[in-house]
Design a protein around this nucleic acid. Structure first.
Lengths: 221, 221, 221, 221
DNA sequence: GATGAATGAGGGTTCATTCAT
DNA sequence: TATGAATGAACCCTCATTCAT
C-alpha cells in the first residue's frame, strides 16, 4: 500500500495538477540532451577519434551503456550533435534574411546574430568540428552542405542580388563567391581556437571591418 | 662523426671498396623524408588520431620500428611534418613581399604563389591539419604562429602600410586585421576538403575576386 | 494467496465485474510458456551464450524484466526449457515400452514415435541443446540423465532382455550398451543440423535400416 | 661487443652446426601452436562464445595482441583449430582404408585408430566442438563435411561395397547410411562429455560391440 | 641501423540484470 | 505484476611503442 502512494506522490510531487504525462520520457529526453552536450564538450576538446565515450558518459552523469540507448554508435552521436544544434539556427537566419531593411543594417544584424548565436555559444565548436572531422564524415559534410550551407548561400545570394540592384553594394563577384562573405567568420573560429592566446582577436570588430570593406565604407580619403 | 665512421667500417669490413662515407647518411635522410611524406598522406587522409603508424611505415617502405629511429613518437612525427614543410615557404613569401612593385601586381603574384605552392601541393593538407589538429597540439600551434603566421603577418602589415601611404589601397582596417586578407585562402582549403563535390570552387578565381574587393576594382558603376 | 487477491482488488477496484480469480494466473502461465517457447527458439538458433534475452522477450511479446519474474536468470530459464519439455515424453515412451507386442513391432512404433514426437517437433532442438550446452550445465546433464536417459535405458534394457529370451533379438551386447540402440537417432539430429544441406538424410529410413541391422533383417543372402 | 656475442651464443646455443635458419620463425610457429592449443582448451571448456581470448592468451603464455598476429579474429582462430587438427587425420584414415586385409580386421584397426587418435587425444574435443558450434559456423561445417566427412564416407562406402561383394558383411543399407557405422563413435564422444560421471562408458568395448553387430558376430545361438 | 614480432593498455560495444515507475 | 530504461562489468580488437634479432 505504501508503494502506490509513494509513487503517486513522487509523480505529481505535491502539485494539484495532472501528473506529468510521462516523467520517464522527460527524464529520458533530459539524459539524451546531457549526452549530446557532454559529447560536444569532449569532441571539441579532444577531437572525434580521441574522445572517449567513457568520458562522455561520466560528464553526462550516465552509464556508458546509456549512450547506446539513445545513439546507435559514436558516429551517430557525433552526427546528431551537428544535426540538432545547427538545424534551428538556419531558420533563424533565414528569418533575418527576409527582413526588408537596408542591406547594411541587415548585415550588421547578421554579424551580431553570428557573434551571439555562434561565437558566444558552443555552435562555434560545432562548426570547428565540422571543419575538423568533416573529411572523415562524408555524410555529415553532405548534411551540413545541404541543410545549412546551401540554404544560407541562397539567402546571401538573394540579398546580394537585391543589394546590387539597389546600389547598396557594388561587387558582383559576391554573387559567384558567397564564401567571400562568410570567410572571416570561419577564420575567426579557427583563430580563436588556435592563436587567441598569442594574439587575441576581437571577432565583432573583425566582422564589422569586413562589412566596411564589402560595403566600401570606412576608407581613407 | 664517430657514428658514420663506425658504421661504414662495420659494413665494409674486409671488402676492398670504400663506400662513400655519406652513403649511410644519405639513405637515412631519404628514409626520413619518405616517412614524413607517407605520414603526411596518412594524417591528411584519416586525421592524426586515426592514422596508423603501421600504414605510414608501409607507405614509406620501411619497418614500423624505423619510424622510431627518426622520430620520438607519433606526436613528434606530426610536428616535424609541419616544421619541415611550412618553414621553407615563409622565406619564399618574405622574398616576394620585399619586391618593390605595385601592390596590386604583388598581390596577384602572391595569389599565384599560394595557388601554386600551397593549393596545388600537399602544403594545403598541412594547413588543413594545423586547423584540424592544432587545438590538440599547443606546441605546434605556437610554432606555426611564431614561425609562419606572425612572419607573414609582419609582411602583410608592412605591405598594407605601404599601400595605404601610396594610395594603392584604402581600408585601414586591414592593418588591424590581416586575417581579412588571408581568410579566403583558408576557407578555400576547407571548402575543397568538404564541399567541392557538391559545389566545386575555382580557387584562383575566388582569390582574384577577393583582391578585386580589397583593391576596390571590378565594381559595377 | 494474499497476492492474487490484493492484485485483483487493486485492478477491478470500483468496478462491478468480478474477474475470474484465475484469470491472472492463466495469463501469467501463458506468458511463462511464451517465454519458454521463445527462449527455445533463440537458444536453438544461436546457442545459449550467444542468445540475447532481449530477443527472447521480443519474440515472447513481453518486456525483458518479465522474464525475471518467471525465471531466476538465464541459466534457470535454459534448464527449465529442458525440464518442462523433455519430462512428458518419458512417460509416453515408458507407456509404449510396456506394450506386450512383438519386439520388432514395438521397435518400429518407437521409431515412429521418435520421428513424430522428437524429430518433427522442437524436442530435437532441445536434445541438440543438451548435447551442445550440457558440458557447461552439469546440473542439467544430471537432470537429463536421471529423469530421461536412465529411465529410457531401463526400458530399453528390459525390452532387450525380453527380446533375447524370446529369441527376437540375438545381440547380448545391447544389454551392456543401450547407447548402440539410440545412437543413430542422436546422430540424425546432429546430421540434420550440420550437414543436411550438403547431403540430406531421410531420418525415418535411417532408423528403419538401423532396426534391420539390429534385428538382423534385410540381409543379402 | 657483448651484445653480438650474446646473441650469436643464444642463436647457435653451443652447437657446432649452422645456426637455425630462423630462430624468429621457429619461435613464431611455436607461439602459433601454443595459441591453437590453448584456444582448443578454452573453447572446449567454455564453448566458443563464452571462451575469452584473454584466457587463451594467458594459457598460451602470450599477450592478447599476439593472437591477432596469427589469426584474423576469434572466428578464424576457431576455424583454424579444426582445419589444422582434423586435416591430417583424414590422410591417415584413408591410408588404413586402402589396406587389402579382411574387412573385420580392418574395422578393428579403425576402431583402435579412432580410440587412439581421436578419443585419447584432443581431437575428440574438436569433434565435439564441431557438433556444438557447427550450426553457428556454416563455413566450418562445410569445411568439415567436404574435407573430412565426405572423404571418410567415400572410404567407408568403398569398403562396404567390397565387404558385400566378398560376403564379409551382409547389410546393404550400410551403403546408403554410412552414418550407421560412425554413429556409436560420435555418441561415445557425447556420452563421455555429459554422462560419464554417472555411468562410465568403455568406448573401445562399445565400438567393438558395434562391430560385432555389424558383422553379425557374437550372437547368442 | 633496420626489422617486425610481441606487448598490453585502452576504447567501443554488448547484454544480463536491476529497479523506479 | 509488468515494464523497459539504466547500469556497468566484460570482452573483442586495435595500435603505439618496445626490443630481441
Amino acid at each position: 500500500m505504501a508503494k502506490p502512494i509513494r509513487k503517486s506522490v513522487s509523480r505529481s510531487a505535491g502539485r494539484g495538477r495532472i501528473p506529468s504525462p510521462s516523467l520517464r520520457a522527460e527524464k529520458s529526453a533530459a539524459r539524451r540532451e546531457a549526452i549530446l552536450s557532454a559529447a560536444l564538450d569532449e569532441f571539441s576538446a579532444r577531437g572525434f577519434a580521441a574522445a572517449r565515450l567513457d568520458d562522455v558518459a561520466k560528464r553526462a552523469g550516465v552509464a556508458k551503456g546509456t549512450i547506446y540507448l539513445h545513439f546507435r554508435d559514436k558516429d551517430a552521436l557525433f552526427q546528431e550533435i551537428v544535426r540538432s544544434m545547427m538545424g534551428p539556427l538556419v531558420g533563424t537566419l533565414e528569418g533575418v534574411f527576409r527582413a526588408d531593411i537596408p542591406l547594411r543594417t541587415l548585415a550588421t544584424q547578421v554579424v551580431d546574430l553570428f557573434v551571439r548565436e555562434v561565437f558566444e555559444t558552443r555552435r562555434k565548436d560545432i562548426i570547428r568540428l565540422i571543419m575538423t572531422e568533416g573529411p572523415r564524415f562524408p555524410k555529415l559534410a553532405e548534411f551540413y552542405y545541404r541543410e545549412v550551407l546551401s540554404r544560407i548561400f541562397v539567402g546571401i545570394r538573394a540579398l546580394t542580388q537585391r543589394g546590387l540592384e539597389r546600389g547598396e553594394i557594388s561587387h558582383e563577384a559576391l554573387l559567384r563567391f558567397p564564401q567571400l562573405i562568410a570567410a572571416p567568420g570561419l577564420v575567426a573560429i579557427i583563430w580563436i581556437g588556435l592563436f587567441d592566446r598569442f594574439e587575441p582577436l576581437d571577432v565583432r570588430e573583425l566582422l564589422r571591418a569586413h562589412l566596411d570593406i564589402l560595403f566600401d565604407d570606412g576608407r581613407v580619403p
